[in-house]
Design a protein around this nucleic acid. Structure first.
Length: 991
DNA sequence: GTCCGACCGTA
DNA sequence: TTACGGTCGGACG
């Protein structure tokens, strides 16, 4: 080995555990053999060998070895018998994979190294130092902090899963000390996973600070008396010996006797057939295909190798149900969208195109070195022209904040398919346009405008035409964010697709739809993490202070990935018949919600501050009474301490337990105790209510008032629920109290601007109406048609009590049952809700199903549908997936069944109000009211508008009409929808 | 600083 | 018995 060579040392043992936990155990061979860690390992090795140049390492190895722990005791046990004594046996599913991974290594034609008595880390250390000595470069493929002590100018680490190189500055950033001091740092902090003791009470921050002050561990231990903090000094003096032992444990040996010399580690050529034989035996079809393509082998002609499996001690056999959700039949009705590239297989069915796209983009390398920074207007114009020519451009903004109402624009990135700039190419080109970067150094005011950026105004003017051009499709991930930012800079995006929403329409219920997740799922690629660019915690910086080259890599990659995702997802929409849902129900809502967020709502800070004061007084009084009744002071807010007082010291009978085994102190339990006559639980319930209102609402809301607009701008998430509902956050304006008088006062703080009213319009019983429609229940349909009290009707039908003069308790029970039905009722849940015996609840349900047999039929049909397809549908065709519905765990399965029953009902109602929201602005505009009546909030079945006083009478019927007819013409409901509307000066009175 | 569980506000 | 998000305490690093 010589200078210029590059040795890769793969930490096989570390990788096994990481891959095992990172990749779902679902990943099994058809005979049930778990191979998730093997799969992760093979993919990582392949990537490393094939395109290490395209990763953060940036070089290809000349030498490579995979190193494993030898499974027996090491010299460290002799130094400290408790070393790794806390380790439990590896998971059962992992045991057979240890051997398989060694087989995999040999199949890759790579040396597989282990030495008795030493850990993999020691072997790695020995090789690393030897290679360093002859002037070679070393990359240790691991993210284990125990190896960071080896990092030097020529020795780097590489986290294969995050595609991140770790060099000296990364170690310093992460641990606060340079690599050579890592040993001392670890000796001080210890390591709980390896049972290395360290010094109690010393963490990395303190350790780094001490090493900074004293230089090294020995000096620190000798001069420990100088430490000012009493506790810290005593700890260090008392545990000095322990620290010295710890140091011996964490310091890696560099003198391990090695059979293989450095020269023996030279990278041999790939043996294609041998590797393919192994991969076929493991049933890794994708990787088999890729390897076959690369080495020009005919995979079909190669037999799967026979790989012996050591199952370990545990008796273990195939036990996992491996059935997969059946694939949908492609619909041929729609043309293939996204057919803009020369490699598009025109004339094929959408499903073929979708499959072809998914295959060609999965694992296709992403070359970050091709990203460019656009620093002058001429280059920008060139790119804009290219985008105009291709007709599709991925677009992304970088800014200073996650809050689009506060964010300043820092730059934008574009990605286009390369067939314009390089005819015939199918690659993607991406570029970043820095606009608002500041140099972090220089003056004290945080640095001035960085050099080499197109002036913001000029760039915006140049881009405006393209971004607002309806003939050019802008592809954006999480469009609402970029839409809002650009709107604040005077550009109103037109003609767009949102990859996040596409994924949501296709795969709601199968995990989140963030770019990182989608990139992993569809491209097999991990994009650079935002944190890796800006740092995290208090050392983080805003994006405008990020170095422009670094920003380019990050931002251009985001656009690149977005375009690739679009290429995969767009044809899937057609193939799965979901284009209409996406185009009619999802995409048009983006500007609607963006406008609502932008408008915000006025919150009266004085009212909130007065309420806070009142709540503080009442809570303090309640607190005193609690202490008096309990006979001691404690933290009432701590369920643990509260449980100890109530059920331990006071000996009250405990009700239910939480899943961690603690006594539950829920409101339900406390109410039950109060009913028994104990005075304390009642007070605690009061105290909880008061402090909840104060901390969550009256104290928190003023902090969300926007400094310029003086209004509160919530953020709506379009893609975070399985059912199709929206969610609201920062602040959540969908859970403002309403049930208690005390809580309702908070609503009086939500006010209209002078000369305006708040108008609230809400659907009456929308979910029960949807149920009556989908299950087609005659009595329910009749009751809604006649405008009868639905809960009273249910009670009358079930218990034979006339509606006239019905006792409120009877109606209450019927109401609980009605809600229960919507939630996929169980006797357990209903019993809980009504505080009755489970048998009694079971009788109610039985009775209900007898009276309304159509409901039972509907529920069974929904479950059967969900089991067969893996998803359920709303009346408009939106899908909600329940991949776990066939779980062998009965409670998990039951939970999924209930959710699957609920989803079409909740989801159809959500679709109806979405449709209303999309139609409302055009309808108001048609009545000349667009400027006088503005939609501000949505709370699942309620819309809140701000309307000019004089326009209330005109706007109300328009709104009610749109809402009541929102299902039409897509679905003609068998029951009427009813909307109640009211206008007042604040939300409490309007509701 | 970051995570998770318990609890509780809404529809 | 469905769907969410926010706050707190407490454990971990």
């Amino acid at each position: 080995m010589n200078k210029g060579d590059h040795l890769f040392l793969v930490d096989g043992s570390g990788f096994i555990f990481r891959a095992f936990h990172a990749i779902p155990a679902l990943n099994r061979k058809s005979d049930g053999l778990p191979v998730n860690a093997v799969s992760g390992f093979c993919n990582m090795l392949w990537k490393l060998l094939r395109d290490a140049r395209n990763t953060d390492v940036g070089v290809t190895p000349t030498h490579l070895a995979v190193i494993f722990d030898y499974s027996s005791t090491t010299f460290r046990k002799e130094i400290y018998p408790l070393y790794k004594a806390n380790r439990s046996a590896p998971p059962e599913d992992l045991i057979p994979q240890f051997g398989l991974i060694r087989h995999a290594t040999r199949a890759f034609n790579l040396p597989c190294i282990e030495t008795e008595g030493f850990e993999a880390d020691d072997i790695i250390a020995t090789y690393a130092r030897q290679a360093e000595a002859v002037g070679a470069d070393v990359t240790i493929v691991s993210s284990d902090k125990d190896l960071m002590q080896l990092v030097s100018a020529n020795v780097h680490m590489y986290d294969a899963m995050k595609d991140k190189q770790i060099s000296i500055p990364d170690v310093i950033e992460k641990w606060g000390v340079p690599p050579e001091k890592m040993i001392d740092l670890q000796a001080l902090t210890g390591d709980s996973t390896d049972n290395v003791p360290g010094i109690p009470g010393i963490g990395p921050k303190t350790a780094a600070q001490l090493l900074e002050e004293f230089g090294d561990l020995e000096t620190l231990l000798e001069r420990a008396g100088e430490i000012k903090q009493v506790k810290r000094r005593e700890n260090i003096v008392a545990n000095a010996e322990l620290a010295r032992v710890s140091r011996q444990l964490v310091e890696l040996r560099t003198d391990v006797p090695l059979e293989m010399k450095l020269e023996d580690l030279v990278l041999e050529p790939q043996d294609g057939p041998k590797l393919i034989g192994f991969l076929k035996a493991m049933e890794f079809t994708t990787l088999t295909r890729r390897v076959a393509e690369t080495c020009d082998c005919d995979a079909g002609a190669i037999e799967a190798a026979v790989v012996p499996v050591e199952w370990g001690d545990a008796a273990h056999g195939p036990d996992l149900d491996l059935r997969s959700v059946s694939a949908d039949q492609p619909t041929m009705a729609q043309s293939a969208p996204g057919a803009t590239t020369s490699n598009t297989a025109s004339g094929k069915a959408p499903a073929d195109l979708a499959r072809q796209r998914a295959e060609s983009l999965a694992g296709k390398p992403i070359d970050r070195s091709r990203y460019v920074t656009i620093r002058d207007i001429e280059t920008l114009e060139l790119w804009l022209a290219a985008a105009r020519e291709t007709g599709v451009v991925a677009f992304d903004t970088e800014s200073t904040s996650l809050d689009p109402m506060q964010a300043d624009l820092v730059g934008v990135s574009f990605a286009i398919q390369d067939n314009v700039l390089s005819p015939g190419s199918t690659d993607i080109r991406a570029a970043y346009v820095p606009l608002g970067h500041r140099s972090g150094v220089g003056d004290l005011l945080g640095g001035g405008h960085a050099e080499g950026q197109i002036p913001m105004a000029a760039a915006l003017a140049a881009m405006k035409g393209l971004l607002e051009d309806p003939a050019v499709l802008k592809v954006v991930q999480n469009l609402k964010y970029d839409y809002l930012i650009m709107k604040r800079y005077g550009i109103v995006l037109q003609s767009f697709d949102d990859t996040m929403l596409m994924s949501y329409v296709l795969d709601a219920g199968k995990g989140n739809h963030g770019m990182d997740t989608l990139s992993q799922r569809w491209l097999g690629h991990t994009p650079i993490a935002f944190k890796d660019v800006t740092g995290s915690g208090k050392s983080s910086v805003t994006f405008d202070l990020v170095d422009i080259d670094r920003a380019t890599t990050y931002a251009a990659e985001d656009a690149d990935v977005t375009l690739r995702l679009w290429l995969v997802l767009k044809p899937r929409l057609a193939a799965e018949g979901l284009t209409r849902i996406y185009e009619r129900l999802e995409r048009p809502l983006v500007p609607v919600l963006a406008h609502m967020e932008e408008r915000g709502i006025t919150v009266d800070r004085q009212i909130l501050s007065r309420l806070s004061g009142e709540l503080a007084q009442k809570a303090a009084a309640a607190e005193d009474e609690v202490y008096a009744l309990a006979g001691e002071r404690f933290n009432i807010g701590s369920p643990k301490q509260l449980g100890d007082i109530l059920f331990g010291r006071m000996g009250l009978p405990g009700g239910s337990k939480t899943k961690t085994g603690q006594w539950s102190t829920s409101a339900q339990v406390l109410e039950d105790l109060a009913a028994e006559g104990a005075p304390l639980p009642r007070k605690i319930v009061d105290w909880r209510q008061l402090t909840k209102l104060k901390s969550t609402y009256t104290d928190a809301l003023p902090g969300y008032v926007h400094p310029q607009t003086k209004r509160v701008h919530t953020g709506y998430s379009l893609a975070s629920t399985t059912t199709g509902r929206l969610s609201s956050s920062e602040p959540n304006l969908q859970n403002i109290p309403v049930r208690t008088a005390e809580g309702r006062k908070i609503r009086t703080a939500f006010i209209s601007t002078p000369g305006h009213k708040l108008l609230s319009a809400d659907y009456s019983q929308i979910e029960l109406r949807v149920l009556a429609h989908v299950a087609d229940i005659p009595q329910l349909r009749q009751a809604f048609a006649d405008g009868i009290d639905i809960h009273a009707m249910t009670a009358s039908e079930m218990f034979g009590v006339p509606v006239e003069g019905m006792p409120s308790e009877v109606r209450r029970r019927a109401k609980a049952i009605n809600f229960g039905i919507i939630y996929g009722i169980s006797a357990f849940g209903l019993a809980n809700q009504l505080s009755i015996e489970r048998s009694e609840a079971g009788d109610y349900i039985k009775k209900y199903f007898e009276r309304f047999p159509g409901i039972k039929d509907y529920m069974e049909a929904t479950k059967a549908f969900a089991r067969e397809k893996g998803y359920v549908e709303t009346i408009f065709g939106r899908r909600a997936h329940y991949p776990e519905i066939k779980s062998s765990n009965p409670s998990m399965r039951a939970f999924n069944e209930r959710a699957a029953i609920n989803a079409p009902i909740q989801g159809s109602a959500a679709d109806i109000i979405r449709r209303a929201m999309i139609q409302i602005e055009p309808a108001l505009a048609a009545s000349g009211l667009a400027e006088r009546c503005r939609m501000l909030l949505q709370v699942h079945d309620e819309l809140i508008f701000e309307v000019e006083d004089e326009a209330v009478d005109a706007a109300m019927p328009v709104i009610v009409d749109v809402m009541e007819n929102a299902a039409m013409p897509a679905v003609s409901m068998r029951v009427p929808l009813k909307v109640d509307a009211r206008a007042a000066n604040n939300w409490d009175e309007a509701h």
